[in-house]
């Protein structure tokens, strides 16, 4: 199997949510000298991007997406372990939850799945979370990004409050802030000074990777 074929098979294994196959391909890629990073980005991540697109069109459903994400994680763990010393990058960390008063956690949980599939270390606080708890958790785990989701126009002000609280605490520059949810837009994100806005779960993961310099 040449490199192009391995990359193609890797992409397919993720779309098929075939974890055993994905892990086998990861091992074969190492044995055949394929660059692990290339294997992750051009093979497995290409697959998860396509899974996201299918999910966004209603052609694939959340349980299947979860299985694809698990396959991706299994393969990525094997490949990351094979990276030469000194080239291993620390996994990006993100703290995420829904705004205080907002019990709508479906969108946020989809984002969590996509973030995990992309290899991020995700600290999911759940729903209806006090603003300060986002900051406390980010401090505790030394996160890179804080993400807040809001489904309601009545709770999206929590996203603005998060940025204000970070500023007050002198921590605004320490964390990237991402916002999302039905009433949020890029215009809103710009206005409150957020670093990124995800229009859907796949886009949120893409933006998170960009913020981490891995997009």
């Amino acid at each position: 199997m040449d490199k192009e074929e391995i990359l193609k098979e890797a992409r397919k294994a993720i779309i098929d949510a075939d974890k055993a196959k994905a892990e086998e391909l990861a091992k074969r890629a190492i044995a055949e000298g394929v660059d692990p990073l290339e294997m992750i980005n051009k093979g497995f991540r290409a697959g998860i991007t396509e899974v996201g697109d299918l999910f966004g069109r209603g052609e694939l459903f959340l349980p299947e997406l979860i299985l694809s994400a698990e396959a991706m994680k299994g393969a990525a763990d094997i490949l990351t372990a094979a990276l030469p010393k000194g080239t291993k990058k620390r996994r990006g960390k993100i703290v995420i939850g829904t705004a205080q008063g907002d019990i709508h956690d479906i969108g946020k949980s989809m984002v969590v799945s996509f973030l995990q599939a992309n290899g991020l270390e995700v600290y999911d606080l759940g729903r209806d979370i006090e603003t300060q708890k986002f900051i406390d958790k980010a401090q505790e785990v030394n996160a890179d990004i804080i993400g807040m989701s809001a489904l309601l126009t009545t709770t999206m002000s929590g996203q603005k409050a998060l940025i204000q609280e970070l500023k007050k605490a002198g921590l605004r520059e320490k964390y990237k802030v991402m916002v999302g949810g039905a009433p949020a837009t890029q215009r809103w994100a710009d206005r409150i000074g957020a670093d990124a806005y995800g229009i859907d779960a796949a886009d949120a993961a893409k933006k998170a990777m960009e913020l981490l310099g891995e997009g």
Binding site: P63, I66, L67, E70, D105, V112, S113, Q116
Partner: peptide
């Protein structure tokens, strides 16, 4: 909560 169970793979 399915939104907590699903990310854990508990389909």
């Amino acid at each position: 909560n399915p939104m907590e169970l699903l990310p854990m793979g508990k389909i």
